[in-house]
Design a protein around this nucleic acid. Structure first.
Lengths: 216, 216, 216, 216
DNA sequence: ACATAAACGAGACGGTACGTCTTGTCTTTAT
DNA sequence: ATAAAGACAAGACGTACCGTCTCGTTTATGT
């Protein structure tokens, strides 16, 4: 999960060849400014006029490329996920899961990710286009980690192969929601740190279950 | 989780006995109007002026009792949680968990809960007072369900007693984050329905773990 | 123009004899507070809540006695005119007029009089009741000075007796408007000081006219 | 006093050449709306939001050009003075003065002038910038009429030439305060009409003085 | 002495306007 | 054609006062 494909900013249509071309540096400057503003102001106080000023860019330019605050922030945050999530092989399913949990937790400690993630999710509950954008820019990218981890565990013999592709997909979705959900809830709703101790306890629960732990 | 203690709206200080007392009907009218406005407009478009108008109340009156949008919405949503979450004894740990998961999912399908919950969580990442308010008004109330469920399961012999109060508290927190997190993530981030099938699979995973399921 | 009749605050009706009587000190405290607030804040920023607070009195008490800002300020300012305008006999018409002009100018240098006078006049252009109140509380009191001065000048032989009472009244009104108008305009509109030099030139003009001055 | 120089609205600074220029029609629309609102509502009830709505303009646009109610109203009223005061040669000093007095009186019968003039004068007692604005926008323009009238009277031999420029200026100021003050006081404070009869008596007094009238 | 009734303080209340801010569009000049 | 600057209409923001109201308390009578 390293080389990001073009951020796919919504307003960008395939253009004719005439006219002054859009500066690609401008894209970067705006996204950087967005992240910086998120850190300082949070979602609620973030304004597009302020982002434009920070980026040294006219508001017009900003609106030419993104439809609004939501779209801009999704793109700005998506880049963070691309840069910071990966799944090196740590030799066992348990170690792999613990690794990705801690990585995800580190990401969620960044103020720009923390604030923005919940905010855009909140907005997406009333905006289908936004939900789709979040799914493709953020959720689906994370989900590949689950698929990769399972494939490795299956190769090691830690997990059985699935009976059908449909069951496999359902199961991956479930595991993804449990892992991502637990980490997000711990970090943002409960407001507690996701440290090694909690991670260990969580992965134990995930692998062996409430009942399984009892038996152990 | 039925009889709600007074909603504890923050602005209400212990006052002297002089002056006209605040009308308690006004409190209710404002909270009802807030929920109605959330359904229609969502968090982003919600306006305190609009809430005041719906409640047939002056903006001043509203600001006299709540410091802002966040505080108001937390109280308005907290009431929903109080009214709609309970844990009737269904005879087994598995049935109890499935019951509460479905109940929680039904709550999260209400548009006012959906939008508002994530929005205030997002804001709480930059506002400690708000986080405390959410914790006491929403999170802690839900957490009692976990404690109650565990006590029952222990009474039935499904779960062992904890070694220490500290360990018990840590474990309850973990279980709570896993259940609530998974349901919220499924419903709001992944945007999929939390139906009986998913619930069954999730509870199986929770009870027996990835490894345990394999063995079964 | 010394012993003021009761300030005649509008709201005071003849009451039954039971019930707690209104405190006369409260009247004074409110009028004093009004003048003090006028000095500090001016007409535009003056608020009745602030006056009440300064007087150590509840807003209700204030509204029980005066209908609003205008009425209150007229009464507060009228007292100033009562206290500060009089016409000692200085031996000649010229000296008498110069004396009253300087006295009036001194009054208009008080910030509370300055601001309040023009403000209530402005309001009175759209409020007949207020105009009547100003006339009886302020204008008529000043006008008696003109009548007194003319009587003295006639006794000295400086001015002839009028042919008819109607002509006498018209002439007194004219002289009053010229004197008061010139002083007010100089002091408040032109914003220049009314000093001995200007007063001398003005009274010379008033007595001898543009043409008469030329001849002299 | 016909062709008005640019109204000189305070907020207008010399700007760079980029950016959308301010619409000059907007200026006119706002000033017209201000006068209309003054007629209907008077100074006290006049609302900048209402003015903006009448002018079909956003409040922001209004505040971009004027600092507040006072400044706006001064400019709106100044235009009236520019349009309605002039001094055609009527052949004699007496006729000239009577003409300008009646003209000024007609102006002061307009409700927008009546209310607004005293109100801004009242505010100007606490605001030096406002006083300066009134002086340059209204007072100084009127004063030129006095200068013009005197020059004509001197040319006709009705008045002598002044000994020094300083004395000339002092004298013009005095005459201006007497004429304007008397008319304003008669019209607004005493609340009586300035008709031909009063005007005749006033101009006679002005030309010949209290003593001079007696001799005649 | 004891009721009656108004005055009084405190402060909630429904309104209205404030002056500022942000949004997304539009219009200009400059590159 | 794109960029920067900034005007613009729209409308929400949170605050301040308005004038009214509802309380509980106090202070004069009139019995």
């Amino acid at each position: 999960m390293t080389s990001a494909p073009p951020p796919g900013c919504a307003g960008r249509r395939v253009r004719g060849r005439t006219g002054r071309p859009r500066s690609p540096e401008t894209d970067r400057a705006i996204l950087d400014a967005t992240r910086a503003a998120l850190v300082e102001l949070g979602w609620g106080k973030l304004t597009l006029g302020d982002v434009a000023a920070r980026a040294g860019v006219a508001k017009t330019t900003l609106y030419r490329r993104w439809a609004g605050k939501n779209e801009l922030v999704v793109d700005a945050v998506a880049a963070l996920f691309d840069e910071h999530l990966e799944l090196p092989d740590r030799g066992s399913l348990q170690a792999d899961v613990e690794g990705v949990v801690l990585q995800f937790a580190a990401l969620l400690e960044r103020p720009e990710a923390k604030t923005a993630l919940m905010a855009v999710v909140s907005e997406s509950t009333r905006d289908d286009a936004l939900r789709a954008r979040i799914r493709s820019a953020i959720v689906d990218r994370q989900k590949t980690l689950v698929l990769l981890g399972r494939r490795r565990a299956q190769a090691r013999g830690e997990l059985p192969f699935e009976e059908s592709p449909a069951a496999a997909a359902r199961d991956a979705d479930l595991i993804f929601d449990v892992i991502a959900g637990a980490v997000v809830h711990r970090a943002l709703v409960s407001g507690e740190r996701v440290d090694a101790e909690w991670t260990g306890a969580f992965v134990a629960l995930l692998l062996f279950g409430l009942a399984g732990r009892t038996a152990t």
